[in-house]
Nucleic acid binder design. Structure first.
Lengths: 227, 227
DNA sequence: GTCTATATGTAGATAGAC
DNA sequence: GTCTATCTACATATAGAC
């Protein structure tokens, strides 16, 4: 975009260790490429070589900017998880601001829609669900689940538990995990939905088409299971 | 178990190319070890070296008996999928033999319970769900889904569709995929359930404890989503 | 910060002796 | 059928020049 960085002028005495634009871009490009390849091929299936190459960077830059493959993976997940967590809490508070008691559908909507809206318009966000599914299904990434997913999950479980004062929190947690799995399948297994729904090819290309059925499915399922 | 194979007697003229007991055992041990390691570490995370070593066999035996890593993986999935598919169809026909119209719960039960009963008593069966989740979430294994999963899935989707004559089959297929995801999470994410259900440690160590909530959850979810 | 070169380990597959 | 040895390719990571 910009011209090559000019040589430092004599007056430039205030050089600090602020990262250059190019360095920041390299670090960010690596994150983007890593996100795509980890989602496509899994953690072990994606090599740092391919990630660096896809980012137009050198292999060595992965260790330099991100410390190694494992921390690169964790940073990839963290970047999305932080933003999405904030969006979900904001959606919950906005729904609460309307005054009266929240419905179960409203709570689930605050959890599900911020993600589906991102995923509908951005392939990187769509791919993020595959990373979440990998982390949620693998004890190897337990520390990532605990640090990045559990706080938000706990808030929503509490919110649902408040709607069913007579139910045990553990029963709510079970249905919450079922619901998250169903939501993730929208991204990880949409191709299977397409194949099994032979009568309507392309019906679910738009991810939004799955939001309403998903929320109705989860809400009704939770009500029945905690009763 | 038995003594060492005695040297062939002179009368043993009918030697055919039937596999020896030991060869069959090697091939089977490789399947067992591969199932365990693939489930634990994923396809790329499990090396044929480690699989052979865990089976007490040589690296070269994997290629010899199973043709290579990919076909070994496919055989691992096939062995379980065939048996489970038959159990599910049998459960469906047994439920149908009771005469009247099947309830949605009965259909889901015929799909879910054969697996959960196996998984409750056998760690290899429990681990199988992780393989199914891997295959269902990865287009790379599309041919395995189509060949081993889709036939049974199609039968159950048809069965559910018959209960909702006014609903589109594609809508049923969506809820079926949601339900399978929820079922798989019982195996892949039970540790997350345990962590999120802080108030009841150990409550879900017995997998059976999840069967009833799961079936109620899925049945009610399907009814609400296809309406 | 980037880049080349390399260190060190492991991957999957197979040839050929036994 | 098994086993040893080896082939070729690729993995992550780092040292040191620029």
């Amino acid at each position: 975009m910009t011209a090559t960085k000019p040589p430092p002028a004599a007056s430039e005495r205030t050089r600090r260790r602020a990262a250059s634009k190019r360095a920041l871009a390299t670090a960010a490009n690596l994150l983007d490429a890593a996100e795509r390849l980890f989602a496509e091929r899994g953690y072990d299936g994606a090599s740092v070589r391919d990630i660096a190459s896809a980012a137009g960077a050198q292999v060595a830059s992965v260790s330099f900017h991100h410390g190694g493959k494992e921390t690169l993976f964790e940073r990839v997940v963290e970047r999305r998880a932080s933003e999405l967590g904030e969006l979900r809490i904001a959606a919950l508070e906005k729904a609460r601001a309307n005054g009266e008691q929240l419905s179960l559908e409203a709570v689930l909507s605050a959890f599900v829609r911020p993600y589906l809206e991102k995923a509908a318009n951005d392939a990187q966000w769509l791919a993020y669900a595959r990373l979440v599914a990998m982390v949620s299904a693998d004890r190897r990434w337990r520390h990532i689940s605990q640090r990045l997913f559990d706080p938000t999950a706990g808030i929503f479980i509490d919110e649902i538990a408040a709607l069913f004062p007579e139910a045990k929190r553990s029963a709510i947690a079970v249905t919450f995990v079922f619901s998250v799995s169903a939501m993730l399948s929208v991204s990880t297994s949409r191709w299977r939905i397409e194949e099994l729904a032979e009568d309507a090819p392309g019906e679910f290309l738009e991810i939004d088409a799955l939001a309403d059925p998903l929320i109705r499915y989860c809400a009704s399922g939770i009500r029945a299971a905690v009763a």
